[in-house]
Design a protein around this nucleic acid. Structure first.
Length: 255
DNA sequence: ATGGCTTATTGTATAAGA
């Protein structure tokens, strides 16, 4: 089973890239973030023609998450039961006996901002909510844009970014607390080298110079850890015309 | 050279992303 995550930065703009990518990479499940569209505009028909069922928790202009699947989708829930939120950032479903949780974590803008406070409150709710979900669904995969680079090697210039948004100690502590629930960063089960990123700023020729961050992650529960066969970042879509600033991360599970 | 780009908005400048 292959599961992937991709922040598309507007599905309206990026649908051709998504359809092309799914044709070349027919994963079982693809989680999307920042669809930035109301449900009525969501391209259910085009995705169905491409072989994918989809569920969407969206809103106009901002945020929005979706799960696309080649297999039947069961028990869909929106958001986190313990956190009232107008922003559409979470959608979950069960597919092939795996609980798939798709998240678009708050960006936070700057460490001294109100948005950072919201980010920390949001992450503060995510942890206990996931603890409960793991009780209900031991086979769980948490995919999405975490807006956290968990380690210095996940940042192109740790000295320049020291204490900044995406790498601040509190954010990294929140990520660390997720791993303490028994969730494992599947990319780091394999690749340990520096210079692997999932997001590059549109400015400063960020991609060409590999000035990136690894902020899109796929975490797997204890019970799935030994089934992980590979986790790769696919940089190909970032090279296209009018790309998303993020690129897909793909997990392969055995059986 | 601390800027640079991209997206959406009942737009034509502003907010947000990260």
């Amino acid at each position: 089973m292959k599961l992937a995550t991709w922040n598309v930065n507007s599905l309206n703009v990026r649908l051709p890239h998504v359809l092309d990518w799914l044709r070349d990479n027919p994963v079982d499940v693809l989680c999307l973030q920042e669809t930035k569209q109301e449900d009525i505009k969501f391209p259910y028909v085009e995705l169905k023609e491409a072989g994918y069922e989809a569920v969407h928790n969206g809103q106009k202009t901002y945020n929005g998450v979706a799960i696309l699947s080649r297999h039947a989708i069961y028990d869909v829930t929106h958001g986190m039961a313990n956190f009232e939120d107008e922003q559409k950032r979470v959608i979950s479903a069960t597919i092939n006996g795996v609980r798939v949780v798709c998240v678009y974590v708050v960006n936070g803008q700057a460490v001294d901002s109100e948005k950072y406070e919201y980010k920390m409150r949001w992450l503060g709710a995510l942890n206990p909510w996931l603890a409960g979900e793991l009780q209900k669904y031991p086979n769980l995969v948490l995919l999405g844009d975490y807006n956290i680079a968990p380690d210095d090697r996940d940042c192109h210039d740790p000295a320049a970014w020291l204490g900044q948004i995406l790498v601040s100690p509190k954010e990294r502590e929140a990520f660390e607390k997720l791993t303490k629930l028994g969730l494992h960063d599947s990319f780091r089960l394999f690749e340990q080298a520096e210079g692997h990123f999932s997001w590059w700023d549109y400015r400063m020729a960020g991609f060409r110079r590999n000035l990136g961050m690894r902020i899109d992650h796929i975490l797997v529960s204890d019970s799935l850890k030994n089934s992980c066969e590979s986790c790769i970042i696919d940089k190909a879509p970032r090279k296209l015309e009018r790309p998303s600033d993020h690129t897909p991360v793909v997990l392969t599970l055995t059986n």
